[in-house]
Each structure stands twice: as structure tokens, then as C-alpha cells.
Design a protein around this nucleic acid. Structure first.
Lengths: 107, 107
DNA sequence: ATTTTAAGCAACCTTTGGGTTGCATATTAG
DNA sequence: CTAATATGCAACCCAAAGGTTGCTTAAAAT
């Protein structure tokens, strides 16, 4: 099955938060960032940001690598690509339904 | 601003639940369904399904029309189209970052 | 060697989410 | 008219989410 609904929900859920969307926006720019860097400019505590990063990491949107005393987070596009596939599938289902309706009316 | 991050989070959050993804899957097939119909085949109570439908409705993924004693829910593709735009934007940012990195290495 | 700086861990708190049950109300069917 | 069907509303429960603070450990800087 190319498009399985199974296990897509957690990825959507991970993106269902303003703070995490902001983190994704920062990280998809290409440059890895440490937790402290990602906390700067935020009104949240370092630990709050850490929790959000772990949520993103748990669904694969982000990967962390420890480098010395800091852990660097970098973006991974794979899960988001899968979400796009899924949304395309949904849109497609809808479009096909419209076509069927149209051809029915034209009969 | 074509792609605003603002207010996208609630739509992602609405899709961040297996039950709601199943409802979307059923409704994007084109045919409207009543609450009772949508409850059938589920292990949940009618009220639970109702709550999920209201969540989907609150972000515009679904619209309800009262017809007699039943309220029919139908799919609306608009918010999902916007999510696709947003995800495309994120992917694009990432790809551009990769290109920049590549051209830098080639120097 | 000492002091910063970066993180991890854990306890705790408060709000939100997902679900249930019970009861009231409005249509439709007999 | 009466019974059955389809919802709506509200109270209540419990678990999970988002956030904070305090303390510890590990690296880097002086």
C-alpha cells in the first residue's frame, strides 16, 4: 500500500503546534542549530523547546547529533514528503468523486 | 503573504488523530454522511464522533448541513490544499538550502 | 583549577483532549 | 398520537500536553 493512513496521525500531530512549526521553519533553512540557539528569540524556557524538539524527533522530522557539549538538530524532509503524498491522495480521491458526479449529471 | 505559518497549526492538529483521519478518508470520497452513518463501524460512541467532526469543522476541513433530523457532513478540500502549499514551501526551502550548499562546495 | 555554558533528568502543575453517560429535543415512521 | 431515530447539551473522568523550576553532569573557556 503506497499511501497508508496508519501512523500518519503522529506526524500531523507533531506539526499541530505553533512553536514546533516555528522550529521547523528555522531548521528547514538548512543550517543545524543547537537547543540554545533555537531557544533564543522565544518566550519559552530551554526545557520547553527541548520537549518540542523531542516530539519532532520522535516522528523523524528532525534528527539530533551530539557535538561536544551541544546537540545539533537538523531537518529531515522524509516524513513531510510522506505527508504531502497522503494529502495528494486525499485531494485525488475528492477530485475523482467530483468527476464521477459530473459524468453522472451529464448522462 | 502566500504562505503564512499563522493558523496552520490547528489544521495540522485536526489531522493529528487516527479517528479524524478515518473520518476524512470516508468523507473525501465525495458522499456526505450523517453522524450516525459515520459512527457505524467505529468502536466509539456517537458523541465521541460528533466531537471529532466538530474539530474538523472548526478548521474548515468539513462542513455540516442540517437536513431534517440529521446533519450531513461533507468534505471541503480548501484547508488541505493550503496545507499542501505550506508543505511544498517547507520542502522548497530545504531544497534551496541543499542547492546553496552544493554550489558552495563546488567553488 | 575554576567558572561558564549546554544539556539532561525529574518532579510538579494546569489546561486541553478524547471518551463516556444521562437526559432533553426534534423529526420521521407506523 | 405514539414510538423510534438522530442529534444536541452538559457534567464528569482520566490521561496526555505544554510549561516551569531545581539540580546534576559534561565540555569549553579563562
Amino acid at each position: 500500500m503506497a499511501v497508508k493512513r496508519q501512523a500518519r496521525a503522529p506526524v500531523f500531530a507533531a506539526l499541530g503546534d505553533e512553536t514546533r512549526l516555528a522550529l521547523v521553519a528555522k531548521l528547514c533553512g538548512g543550517q543545524p542549530h543547537s537547543i540554545s540557539q533555537l531557544t533564543q528569540g522565544t518566550k519559552l524556557s530551554r526545557q520547553a523547546i527541548t520537549k518540542h524538539l523531542r516530539v519532532l524527533e520522535s516522528v523523524g522530522i528532525v534528527r539530533s547529533v551530539r557535538a561536544g557539549r551541544e546537540s545539533r538538530f537538523k531537518f529531515d524532509p522524509t516524513p513531510i514528503g510522506e505527508l504531502k503524498e497522503y494529502l495528494d491522495f486525499v485531494s485525488q480521491q475528492w477530485d475523482q468523486a467530483l468527476s464521477r458526479l459530473k459524468s453522472f449529471v451529464e448522462d
